[in-house]
Amino acid sequence: MKKNDMILIISILLLAGAFLVGYRRYQIMNTGDNARVTVTVAGEAYGEYSISEDRTEKILLPDGNYNILEIKDGYVSVSEASCRDKICVNHAHIHYSGEEIVCLPNKVIIGIINGEESDIDGFAGQ
């Protein structure tokens, strides 16, 4: 291993690490009480749920595949899925705005967006 290799490895790790820490702080700061859970399937909106209400939602795809979304105490996770790799099920639960759980085989993306303040009428978010 050359010196250049070390420089490359350390700078990649530092850059990626710094980006992760910075983005994490940004996520924490930008998460309000009205954050909402959004579900998209193959790029199209499927549903939107409040993060503060506990619920279990079966995301059913036209081809029979499914992911079961669970919202509990402000945390979102996938409890069951029909896909092969089960990466979404093993994914750590998400809580902050900008976090995601992705199921590549089913093309399902579960994300959290910071909902608009609910007392401002007429602003429906994006």
């Binding site: 990626a16 690490g17 980006f19 193959a42 790029g43 995601e100 992705v102 093309k107 993306i109």
Partner: peptide
Amino acid sequence: VLETSAILYYLP
């Protein structure tokens, strides 16, 4: 495939 750039979140 997913028609979203949201997955860039995983890049780091």
